[in-house]
Design a protein around this nucleic acid. Sequence first.
DNA 1: CTGTATCCTTCTAGATACTG
DNA 2: CAGTATCTAGAAGGATACAG
Lengths: 122, 122
Amino acid sequence: MERNRHIYNCQEGCPIESTLQIISGKWKSVILYHLIKQDATHFGELSRQMKDCSRRMLALQLKELEDDGVIVKHQYPVIPPKTDYELTDFGQTLTPVILAMEKWGNYYNKVSAEKNDLTINA
Amino acid sequence: MERNRHIYNCQEGCPIESTLQIISGKWKSVILYHLIKQDATHFGELSRQMKDCSRRMLALQLKELEDDGVIVKHQYPVIPPKTDYELTDFGQTLTPVILAMEKWGNYYNKVSAEKNDLTINA
DNA sequence: CTGTATCCTTCTAGATACTG
DNA sequence: CAGTATCTAGAAGGATACAG
C-alpha cells in the first residue's frame, strides 16, 4: 500500500491547502477534467488521453480519488473486462475549480500562441 | 540552478495541462492566494503563513513564479533588507482559479467539520 | 531580513513482468 | 482490458551553514 501523501499545513484551515489535499496529485485535475467533459471514462481512454501518465500512475491517482470519495469505479464482469469511472456528487462540486483551470489554460494557450507568432514574424 | 520542472503532456494543447504548468508547484497556489488576499507580501510573512514550507522551498517556488512572469519582486536596499512580492497583470488573470479553489476549500472544510461532529456525537 | 549552496535522505515515478 | 508487484534511477525536499 502506497500511503504517504503529503500533508499540507500552510495554516490551520487554509482553504487552498484543503483543496490541494484533494486535487494536488500530479494528474488528478486532468483526470477530473476528462470525467467532467465525459470524453474519457474508461481506464484505457484516460490512458490514451494522458500520454505522459504511465498506467501505474494513472491507477494510483484513480485509486486516491476513489479513496477520497471524488470518483466511483464501476466494473462490468464481461470479457474483455470493462471499467468506467464517474464523479460522485461530492466530486461534482469540484467542477467550478476544474472549469476555472480550463478557462485560464485556454486563455494562456492563446496568449502563448500570439507571443510565438510575434517571435516568428519578428 | 534547479531546472527540471515536469513537462505535462496529457494532450497537445490540453488547457488543464497548461494551467498546471504554471501553478502546479507544491506551494505556488498557496503563495498566489496570499498575494491575492494581500495578507502576506514579504518573504518572512509568507514563511510564517506557510509553516510547513521551508525557506528553501519558498524561495524556489517564488523564483519559478517570477521566472514565469506571474509575480514581480521589489527589493528595498534598507537595513534590515526588505522585499515584497506582487502579482503582475498576467498573474492577476489567475485570480479566478485561486478564488475557485478558495471557495471549494471553504466548502470542504465545512462538510468535513460536520462529518466530524456526527462522528463525535454518534 | 532575505536569500543561496551543499549535502544527504526520502519519495516519486518509469520500466518491466505478471494476474484476473 | 484493467490493473498489481517489484525494482531502481533520479528528483524532491529538509537541515545546515553561509552571504549580502
